[in-house]
Design a protein around this nucleic acid. Structure first.
Lengths: 107, 107
DNA sequence: TATATTTGCAACTAATTGGTTTCACAACTT
DNA sequence: AAGTTGTGAAACCAATTAGTTGCAAATATA
């Protein structure tokens, strides 16, 4: 069973769940109300997100509050960083080019 | 057939392909040499990446060079941004707290 | 204690996935 | 013209996925 963050965020419902609980922890029932699916299906998504540590549970009586483990998100950010480095470098090149053109015009 | 970037980068081989061609365009054969799989399997990955516009082709004689469409990567970055905003806010809160403690000590 | 609520888990199903083998076609080379 | 090389696409297969329904366990309420 492959269980990494990239596979976890591949599903649109799971991405929506992460956005939903980003600001405040919620119970499975409350989460399920936001989607056109059964509570059990949401429960399965929550299990997958828990397994790859993108969320964590906090039991309160018979309710379980799920909340985002935001630090785990940094792993995706880290992978994207290699590409960000490239597009920022290109942006700076373009910037220098424009500056060169401008300086040329002023002469 | 769902075909979005998140589903595309869910596969580890596809992520490796993206990293591989990030700096220079490559042919399917050259790419396949880096993986323990057939050229045809790589070809299928390239098709998926092309369909969601993460890469583009450039024909040169009978060879086809695949190169990264880096701008498309920004869409993932954009989704991550909502979470980055949160962890940066928390970092600043912590920073302020430390500053408050320090200031308190100086009194 | 009996009942309702909140939840996770197992079993099943249809669709999708990533891989393979085989083939066809176009472009170079001899 | 004949053979080689680089490539995509089709047909098939095993594994995985996301969903369903049904059930069991634990906690709250009457």
């Amino acid at each position: 069973m492959r269980r990494d963050i990239f596979q976890a965020i591949a599903d649109p419902t799971r991405r929506a769940i992460l956005t939903l609980i980003a600001l405040q922890a919620m119970t499975p029932n409350a989460i399920a109300e936001h989607f056109d699916t059964t509570r059990q299906a949401v429960s399965k998504h929550l299990r997958i997100l828990t397994e790859c540590e993108l969320i964590k549970q906090e039991q309160k009586g018979r309710e379980i509050y799920y909340q985002l483990e935001i630090d785990k998100m940094k792993e995706v950010d880290k992978w994207i960083a290699q590409f960000r480095k490239i597009w920022e470098a290109r942006f700076n090149q373009l910037d220098n080019l424009l500056l060169t053109i401008k300086t040329g015009e002023e002469k």
